[in-house]
């Protein structure tokens, strides 16, 4: 299952709809499905804000690979290279005044998915530079 959407926040619900359909095919339970929805939402938001620096500057391609025991989701964009190591993890214990919410999306992705791989392919001939994020949610750990 692959679909491409203009990178706009209004399309988040449509992308989430696609991955929810794939989660149903795999048979992920409600908790695991919610985790996948959050992870994909945060990943797409990061693509729009950090790779494309705003809405309407490219597309997000979403591929869902339902398997017997897991769901794999691949998100591709042609925005600026994204280095997850450059994003500091949020301090989830700070008091209210010192609480910053930057990095929370990436933190959720890493916490909620079983496997997360970021790759960047520089442009090569007619091939545009591409960020590829591959995330996996296993069925057996979804309880």
């Amino acid at each position: 299952m692959t679909a491409s959407y203009p990178a706009r926040f209004e399309n988040l619900a449509r992308i989430i709809g696609l991955v929810t359909q794939a989660a149903e095919i795999v048979g992920l339970n409600e908790k695991a499905t919610y985790a996948v929805q959050i992870a994909v939402d945060e990943a797409c938001t990061n693509i729009i804000e950090h790779a494309y620096h705003g809405e309407g500057n490219g597309n997000i391609e979403c591929t869902c690979i339902p398997d017997q025991d897991k769901l794999t989701i691949i998100l591709r964009d042609q925005g600026q290279a994204f280095d997850p190591n450059g994003i500091p993890l949020p301090d989830t214990t700070a008091c209210l005044e010192d609480r910053h919410t930057g990095g929370l999306g990436l933190y959720f992705i890493k916490k909620l998915m079983d496997k997360v791989v970021f790759e960047f392919c520089p442009s090569n001939g007619s091939q545009k530079a591409t960020n590829t994020l591959t995330m996996t949610k296993r069925k057996e750990t979804s309880a």
Partner: peptide, 19 residues
């Protein structure tokens, strides 16, 4: 039905203002 980190950000900012 759903709250992402963008929603959490709004709530924490509002809490800071209110308190």
């Amino acid at each position: 039905t759903y709250v992402s980190s963008a929603g959490l950000r709004v709530m924490i900012d509002t809490q800071k203002t209110c308190r």
